[in-house]
């Protein structure tokens, strides 16, 4: 039987900025329907990895493959099946929510944009925001509108960069549940970066703990913190941040 091609494959990604090595040979794969978390302290290489995977930055060496295709050779074909949401990007703040969604629906070539937008507004419980000015939304509303944009093209792979940053626990919990529901219903694959351990534990099947641009550990959330004799992921995170875990050494 032929092995299934990973949805996303990072092969020996290296990114050097001047004297500093932001990523040092990062390799991993995301299978269909899988949710992989990228975890690490500030400067660990998460954002650099995300930018390389989105084609916003070119790697010094290494390769990104999605759906079995090279990202840089088949960028448009790939990006039609991928989407992205980040706490650090906005939709144009001066447009109405529906205007932003219409523009992105057209950009992603959505066949029935009106129906799809209505469907997503309902799914994310933001139908009442249709005619709101995007820049006047609360953080929670804005996150849900960003998610609506990210789901417009029914992506096979969703890249989420700290999607619950600045959300209150209630909204963050709703977002996590929604993602799990979507995964269960659509077989969506997710790559998720977060500083929120609860996000990672609840949303991700597997995680990669990055440190200094390298993979410190990989496995299920439980496996990873147990490997380092830590009580929880958060405890491991703090240990790494304070240099206590570095003594254990990077796993081969």
């Amino acid at each position: 039987m032929q092995a299934q091609v990973p949805i996303l494959e990072a092969v020996s990604l290296v990114k050097v900025f001047g004297e500093s090595t932001a990523l040092d040979g990062l390799s991993f794969a995301v299978a269909k329907g899988e949710s992989l978390g990228l975890l690490g302290v500030n400067g660990a290489g998460k954002t650099t990895a995300m930018n390389l995977l989105l084609g916003l930055t070119t790697p010094t060496s290494g390769q990104v493959r999605m759906f079995g295709l090279d990202l840089w050779k088949h960028r448009i074909e790939i990006l039609k099946k991928v989407n992205f949401s980040s706490a650090y990007t906005n939709l144009p703040s001066n447009l109405l929510v529906w205007q932003n969604l219409v523009v992105f629906a057209k950009l992603y070539g959505v066949r029935h944009p009106k129906e799809r937008i209505e469907q997503l507004l309902e799914l994310l419980d933001i139908t009442h925001l249709r005619k709101s000015v995007t820049g006047r939304l609360s953080a929670g509303e804005s996150t849900r509108v960003n998610l609506a944009k990210a789901l417009l093209n029914e992506p096979e792979l969703l890249l989420l960069d700290e999607p619950t940053a600045s959300l209150d626990p209630d909204i963050a919990d709703r977002v996590r549940k929604l993602l799990r529901k979507l995964q269960a219903e659509t077989g969506l694959s997710v790559l998720y970066t977060s500083h929120n351990m609860r996000d990672i534990e609840e949303v991700c099947d597997r995680l990669i703990f990055l440190h200094g641009g390298k993979v410190l550990a990989e496995g299920t959330p439980g496996e990873v913190h147990e490997r380092f004799n830590r009580t929880s992921l958060e405890d491991l995170f703090i240990g790494v941040a304070r240099g206590e875990v570095a003594a254990i050494g990077i796993q081969p």
């Binding site: 989105l54 990006l79 992205f84 144009p92 001066n94 950009l107 992603y108």
Partner: peptide, 18 residues
Amino acid sequence: LEDVWTRNLLNVFVAPVR
């Protein structure tokens, strides 16, 4: 610049836009 000012540039550059 409109895309830069509204922090929308990344959304456009990760969309299937040549």
